[in-house]
Every structure is written in structure tokens, then in C-alpha cells.
Design a binder for these strands. Structure first.
Lengths: 203, 203
DNA sequence: AGCCTTTAGATACTTTGCGTTTCTTATAGT
DNA sequence: ACTATAAGAAACGCAAAGTATCTAAAGGCT
């Protein structure tokens, strides 16, 4: 309880800031995410943060990027539709979806801070645990002969994330209903896979 | 040339404000869209605007909604792929796409102004000239026997807009390349239509 | 150990833009 | 002509981004 003030530096401090930023993002969302609150929560001050990241947007992205998406395994319900519904709902409820507000917010600022645009685009399109889970699900369906053999292009593997992000943005924060997810699966994704399979078979 | 200052009221003034707002949106985008600039351009002042719309976001949406999308007809190139490419590229270059930054920006503010969320969602999902153009394109392809008969659900008709909006947001303002559009058509939309058609034939 | 470079942390500042308040006075309805 | 309404001007409060200045702690170096 003496007045000795311990001062963190370097990596340790950086981690503390990013942890605080992530906690803030989860608690208040990007719209109310302020650098001052992050500084306060991390027990430091604004200049320390601005020495490391050029803007609020970059800080938020850095905090997000550090979160390793927990690999939750791949659903295996015995049917393609069941697996897809489980997967879509996991995506829609998971942390990735919580970040859709942030994606929109950051993009809204990208005109003023063009540097962040590249960072963001990269994160959104890169292969991830989710895209490989899609591979597995599709592979399983092929093995069960629910689908003809098919080799989906990368765009199709990232499509669930894209569809759900778009749905999330267009419904402006309202949590996605089961009906909406079912519509994405039944009206779009399953037919797409069938179509891909028949086209590729014709080769 | 006398000092007589004419003062507009009611509908006339409202139109002038919305015109000014639309002009601002097109010139500087939503990120730099300020109420003061709109007031200045319309030759009026901020309180007049805030008496009519509760926030910057609502003003921007109102200006956008007033723009009637010019019906540019439906492409008819003789092939499904050609029609789709023409359509996708029209969407990607048109005013609707210019508004993607705004969609993101408004959504980013939706947490603070939940009222606007509903307005926005409605506009994005409603049937429009674009969805009926999709109907026509698909109908033409069926007539040419490029596709088995198919009755696409509404979600599929709005999908081009959704795909392009998402692409626009994830590439943060960079204009979409022809390759990206081709990938949306070839990897996603055409296979989806084929898949839908075969599934519906099985009924 | 003691010096010295680095940089954390505190504080206060500038700027920008939203949304409001107050007041004057033109406009439209009766 | 009288009166209610609402336009327009100016200034304000406020929040939050980003910057500048200063101090003193941390940790490397000799």
C-alpha cells in the first residue's frame, strides 16, 4: 500500500492495453468504444496508446486480431442441412459476429484512415478455422453421398461468413432469427452446393 | 438586389435540404457528411434541419430514400452469364453501391440511434427494380433453356445486392474489380441458380 | 553502484462536429 | 392588420479524437 507506482513497459504493457481494448469492445461495442476508456481500464493514458496505434480504428482491429478464434470443432449431425444450420448458428452467435458492428464502424472510418482498409480486408477474407470447417462439412456430405463430389472454390468456403455478416449489418444489430439462418441455408447455401456439384461433374 | 431576404418554408424548404444533403453525400461520402455543410449548402441553418430529422443518420437516409432508382432496363446479352455480369457490374458501379459506405456508417451509429435501424433494414430488403430485373434475367435464361424452370425465392433475388454490398464493405471503398464480380457470378450465383433449378425439378 | 536513454503516465490542450438554446423577424392564415 | 408559426443567425455545451508538454520511473550500460 505504499505509494510506489509500478510502471509497465514494452510487451507487457501492450498486452494489457489490448486486453482492455478487447474487454471494452465486448462490453460497449465499437460505437461507444473510446480510447480514453481503454486507457483508463488498462491503467495507463492516451498518449501511450497513440504511440502504438495511429487511430482508434487500428487499436480496435489490433485487439480483435489478437483473439485467436477458438476452434470449436466441426458439427457432425449426420445431415448436410443439420451441419450447416449448426455452423451458421455458431457463426451468427459467436465472437466473429459480435464484430460485425465493428466491421461496419471501421469501414465507415476507412475513408479518413485508408491504412486500416487493407488490414480489415485481409482479416475478412483469409482462410480460417471457419473455412476449413466448411471443407469438412462438405467433405462429410460427399462421403455420405448427400452431394456429388465437389471442390468448392475459396469464395464459397467464406460465403457463410459473408452471408451472415451482411445479414447482421442489414438487420442493424438485431440478433439473427432462426428463420433467417434457415433461409440462408435452404434458399442459398444448399442449392449452391448442389449446383456446384452438378456443374463440376459435367467437366 | 434589395436586402429583402426570402424565407422558404414547409415542403419547398424540405426539398432544398434533401437536395443539398444528397449532393453532399455524393461529393464527400457519409464519413465527411456534416449537418452544418448541408445547412450551408441549402442556405439554411442547423436548427431547421434538426426540427425535421432527429440525427445526421436520419437526414442521410431521408436524402437517400428520396432518390428514385432510375430503371435502366434489364440487360439482354443472349446468355445468362452475360446478363448477370452486366447486372452485377451495373449494381457495383451505380448509386446503390455508392451508398454502401453510408450503410456501414449508419449501421455503425445504429447502436446510439436504434430508430434508424428499422428504416435502414427496410430499404435494403424491399423488392426494387433490381429484384425484378433479376426475375426477368432468370426468366429469359429459362426461356432459352439455359436453366430448367425455376422460381427463385426472394432471398435469391436480393442476393446480388447483398453479395456486392458485402464485397464493397470488405474491400473498404476500393472499387470492385471485374475479377471479383466474375467470381461472384461464376462461383456463386450461376451455380446457385442451377442448384435451385434441379432441386425444384425433383419436387 | 551510479549514469543516461527511453518511455510511461499525468495533465491539459486544440479541433471537430453533433445536437441545443435563445432570440429576432419573415411568412401564412384568419 | 393581427397573430401563431417557424426560419435563420449566433452562440453554446459536450464528447471524443488526437497532440503537446512535462515528470519521473525502468532498465541497460559502464
Amino acid at each position: 500500500m505504499s505509494g510506489t507506482k509500478s510502471r509497465r513497459r514494452g510487451a507487457k504493457l501492450e498486452q494489457a492495453i489490448l486486453d482492455a481494448a478487447w474487454a471494452e469492445l465486448r462490453e460497449v461495442g465499437y460505437a461507444r468504444f473510446t480510447v480514453e476508456a481503454v486507457a483508463g481500464r488498462a491503467g495507463t493514458s492516451k498518449p501511450v496508446i497513440y504511440r502504438r496505434w495511429r487511430s482508434r480504428a487500428e487499436l480496435a482491429l489490433a485487439a480483435w486480431y489478437r483473439q485467436v478464434p477458438a476452434d470449436q470443432g466441426t458439427p457432425d449431425t449426420g445431415t448436410l442441412r443439420g451441419d450447416l444450420l449448426a455452423m451458421f448458428s455458431r457463426i451468427a452467435r459467436g465472437a466473429d459476429s459480435m464484430m460485425n458492428e465493428m466491421v461496419a464502424g471501421v469501414m465507415g472510418e476507412a475513408f479518413r484512415h485508408p491504412e486500416v482498409a487493407a488490414l480489415l480486408g485481409d482479416r475478412l477474407t483469409r482462410p480460417s478455422p471457419l473455412t476449413s470447417a466448411m471443407e469438412t462439412i462438405i467433405g462429410n456430405a460427399v462421403a455420405r453421398a448427400e452431394l456429388p463430389p465437389v471442390d468448392p472454390p475459396h469464395r464459397v468456403k467464406r460465403l457463410p461468413l459473408d452471408l451472415i455478416r451482411n445479414e447482421s449489418i442489414t438487420s442493424c444489430g438485431t440478433p439473427l432469427s432462426d428463420e433467417a439462418l434457415a433461409s440462408l441455408v435452404d434458399d442459398v447455401y444448399v442449392p449452391l452446393l448442389r449446383g456446384l456439384a452438378t456443374v463440376q461433374q459435367a467437366d
